[in-house]
Amino acid sequence: MTPSPDRRRFGDSKKDRIDALAQTAGSTAGGAQGGTVMTVADAGRVSGGEGQSLIASAWKRLRRNPVFLTGAAITFVFIVLAIIGPWIAPYDPVAQPLLSQVRRQTNPVPGPQPGFPLGGDDVGRDLLSRLLVGGRQTLIVGVLATLGGLFGGLTLGTLAGAIGGWVDSLVMRIVDVMLSIPGLILAVSIAAIAASPSQTTVIIAIAVVQIPIFARLLRGSMLAQRASDHVLAARALGVKPHAIVFRHMLPNSLGPVIVQATLVLATAIIEAAGLSFLGLGNPDDRQPEWGQMLGQAQNYVSDYPHLAIYPALCIIVVALGFTLMGESLREALDPKSRR
């Protein structure tokens, strides 16, 4: 998550518990440590042991949150599938074992049969194999598009939020213009500019659409941070400006952005499917991708809806997984829910 030095404490909860126990034992023994004095010191007690960072305490709450666990489980299965998909797929996704059954007029899509539980597609390829293998490309599109959007958004948002003044106005006007164009239309126009549509153009188109969302979000929380007391305190302390931005403002602004990233991952996959559906996806179907499969199913959707339903279901479940994770993260990172 955040590049924080505290990550190593994730596994230290057991130690914490032991420390806490030791501490309670100490306090019931009265002023054992302090000789005859029964009363606490002026400042009160400070328990021993390692401290628990905000991220660690958020993680502690998340671990027991069923919503988060569901989302994480779905995401985990999806990632595993993306890695091992090609090995568990019964057929090569480009092989056409059912080609002999395809009849342009009478039977364009071979149905389910022994060895092919989901049947084949319109050129006789095994649908199950293509779904299993397609997870990887879908993940790549989703992750790269999100990372691209995140990178662009972080750069613009940090610029606007940290420098302020006319830079802020300029960046924000650009962002406003981008936001005023509906996302899909913007993606369509970017994808259409490219000489020939490909995986890369899809990723770029979706990434660009996400940039203003991240930029606005980050700029907003950076501004809130800039007005916060702890940034004022750092200024009063004489901390160097770049250290204030990168040590105090940025890490404290990232929470909502990370949450948004998990949600954007879901929408990126859906938007990729949308572009494919509109014929702006990757035409090279040797590497299957769910969105692309969904797009190609449109010719047969009235007679053979299962061609669309299977990839659509996969997308919906995966998107749900990321969304559940994102929503529970938002809840856990919300300072108001901390006690």
Binding site: S27, D42, R45
Partner: peptide, 26 residues
Amino acid sequence: NPIPGSVADNLPWTSACAFAPRCLNA
């Protein structure tokens, strides 16, 4: 003459006086 500590130092009422750790008369 401040009261030492804070409410974080309290004991549970079930088995003690909650104020005892901060109390000069304890």
